[in-house]
């Protein structure tokens, strides 16, 4: 049957894989928007590179979700493309941080830094997962995210400690993004089950190390950690900002216009 929407059987394992895949895809998509428009050719290539890494990670995680998802009615199975192109906004499970519009280069860098400072140690810890496939995905992803963290750290320092104008822009980016960082460390019952099996780690254990990394880099960048403790959340359960709908409308338009077509 040709379909233009899908249902997903979100067992804890599937939900887990989709959350991480959606983070990577949506953030990778945002970075891909910069291609051809970055401040220098070198940065154009670097942002595309990071975007490509993230899209690659998303594909591996969607493939895992498809493997772990119980067969649908009629024996049909979801694929990386049905997950990406045929789910509606409320079915997406990514962090709000990843879907925020790019803004200027400073905000792109700051968003990537805050995420990379979390996801790099996260994947490093996940290399010890009891699930061999997840451990393999983590091992490959960590090599990439280590570079993303290094690249963005250097730019946060350079721009924070550059000119008064760049300093102000970076501080503004940090203030804007800060309340979206708390969601990275959240956990819920579905994930607690997988944690108990040793399949995944508890993201909250990453928090202190993340905070130290962020503080260290911000100090060198002469930037100030925001004081606000209020944290936005909702992406993990499908409650998104207004921005994701526009992103998906653009991304999904073509496959949805020709149900069942091969591209």
């Amino acid at each position: 049957m040709v379909t233009n929407t899908i249902s997903v059987s979100e067992t804890p394992q599937v939900l887990y894989a989709l959350r991480r895949a959606d983070d990577a895809l949506i953030l990778g998509h945002r970075l891909s928007e910069c291609c051809g428009h970055a401040p220098t050719l070198e940065e154009d290539m670097a942002l595309a590179n990071i975007g490509l890494d993230l899209i690659g990670q998303a594909r591996a995680l969607y493939a895992l979700a498809a493997l772990r998802e119980p067969s649908l009615e009629g024996g049909r199975a979801n694929t990386e493309d049905t997950y990406a192109y045929l789910r509606d906004v409320g079915q997406y499970r990514n962090l709000l941080l990843c879907e925020l519009p790019n803004g200027d280069f400073g905000r792109i860098i700051m968003r990537q830094f805050l995420y990379s400072a979390f996801i790099d140690p996260y994947w490093r810890a996940m290399m010890k997962s009891s699930d061999a496939q997840l451990a393999a995905i983590a091992e490959k992803a960590e090599k990439e995210t280590a570079y993303h963290l290094r690249y963005t750290s250097e730019w946060v320092i350079r721009l924070g400690d550059g000119t008064p104008k760049s300093h102000d822009r970076m501080q503004a980016a940090l203030e804007f993004l800060w309340s979206y960082t708390g969601e990275m460390f959240d956990t819920d019952e579905a994930e607690a089950m997988l944690q108990a099996e040793g399949m995944i780690i508890d993201a909250s254990v990453i928090h202190d190390g993340w905070r130290t990394t962020v503080q260290t880099i911000l100090d060198r960048a002469t930037l100030t950690l925001p004081q606000s403790a209020w944290m936005q959340k909702g992406g993990r359960s499908g409650r998104h900002s207004e921005h994701l709908g526009f992103l998906l409308a653009e991304m999904q338009q073509l496959p949805r216009s020709e149900p069942g077509a091969v591209w």
Partner: peptide, 23 residues
């Protein structure tokens, strides 16, 4: 068309291609 590529494989290939052009 990077943001509108109709599959993830096409999206990655097109992004890599346009990046090559920059290179």
């Amino acid at each position: 068309w990077i943001t509108r590529a109709p599959s993830l494989r096409r999206k990655a290939a097109l992004l890599a291609k346009v990046q090559d052009e920059c290179g």
